[in-house]
Design a protein around this nucleic acid. Sequence first.
DNA 1: TTAGTTTTCGCCTTATAATCGAAAACGTGA
DNA 2: TCACGTTTTCGATTATAAGGCGAAAACTAA
Lengths: 241, 241
Amino acid sequence: MHEVLAAVLQVRDGQLQVLLWQRGIEPDAGRWALPGGRLGDSEDVQTSVLRQLAEKVDVREVAHVEQLQVFSAPDRMPQRRTVVTAFLGLVPCVADPVLPDDTAWHPVTDALQGSPPTAFDHGLIVRRARDRLRAKLSYTNLGFALAPPEFTISRLRELYAAALGHRVSATNLQRVLSRRGVLVPTGGTAAPGPSGGRPAALYRFAERGMRITDPFAVLRPPEPQHAPEGAVHLADPGAAP
Amino acid sequence: MHEVLAAVLQVRDGQLQVLLWQRGIEPDAGRWALPGGRLGDSEDVQTSVLRQLAEKVDVREVAHVEQLQVFSAPDRMPQRRTVVTAFLGLVPCVADPVLPDDTAWHPVTDALQGSPPTAFDHGLIVRRARDRLRAKLSYTNLGFALAPPEFTISRLRELYAAALGHRVSATNLQRVLSRRGVLVPTGGTAAPGPSGGRPAALYRFAERGMRITDPFAVLRPPEPQHAPEGAVHLADPGAAP
DNA sequence: TTAGTTTTCGCCTTATAATCGAAAACGTGA
DNA sequence: TCACGTTTTCGATTATAAGGCGAAAACTAA
């Protein structure tokens, strides 16, 4: 049997959290599992996981979904042999979907340490999801999927710090993203906090489509020569000795 | 039904090539397909694809295998609905496995342009495999899977150029890989070619395990402070003013 | 010995990230 | 209204790594 699962991640309360539901029946009753379910006959895996998220946990605000990996160990679940395609899902920090009673957000760090206990191999899937997110935050504009449509650099810095698990310099974040052209100022400013301070400028991401600015520019192809032959007059119109 | 497929790549004759077999029966009779087959009940997908490669095309010299992606469009194959887990496989350039009559190597570039015509969505899988290889060559030591155990920089440069599809500077390749610590001199030298020249030093890869030296060191965590508090005496045993 | 070939190494330039500190822009309270 | 604390923003500087170029090294063949 083939099923799909999603590790849906969101930054809440300054921590990266994952959406889990508590199993009511055996096997692994009482343990916490990722949302998902059986693959339908007339849908592909990504359509299926989005459908099931919408149906089961009312998550329609998923800003980004991507395939993580297939888990297929014959004994990964007792009883029936089940192959699963695992996904990473990201939800902006402003979203607060209504959840069923058996469903809740849990800090990823806690879940990876057994609190709450996770069902089957779902803990491993959560770890893969977190690692993938951390890697992609470094070299893509995947941050758009964690951030609101408009945000200040400070706000974005908090999101990155929560997701990456370490401190992040606002100055550096600002310029690294700007250089890549994924950060666009909207012109507006946010109101200062209660203790004053300079009002922060608002930004948005250039595109929501995982645009990557030359991924891993290492061992890149040689620069095309400016004008190997002919067309030289174009580059040199009226030069004087 | 679930099946596994592998795009097995190797550099031959200075070109990146892929292993294909010609289908004898409908559907898509006469077109060229990737090796693979049905997932067994007691094996995971990676075990399965390695088994089938060994059984069907006598490829036991696969140096590296990794999951690419699940392809699951309901209509990706006529007749029966089939979900496939696609793999990337890499074979060192020195290997020359015995192949069945219906099986042959084809340049990836040609296959992607319809020569020979590929079956089902296998052309798309080949493209994904090539792109993945190119990306990973930039920031991992995946080159070990294309290269012999020992090699010269010139030889490695040819392999990289063939796989990446553009010229590669031997000087730069040498230093980029050395800096990462994945290139280890063996001490030996290769015999000069028929037209003379300085004999080249032999190298090997440091590890065959996809060791990555700090992947994408962007937005990296701040350096740990030398000695924030306590334990200072350890770092400073018997210092005099 | 000389010419030709190939490899290897050092120096320089460029590109990008990280760090530091000062200036700008706002509230608050004397 | 005028210092003061706070937060944001920007410029200058440093650090690191990749890319390019040419000279020197090490060999073969005439």
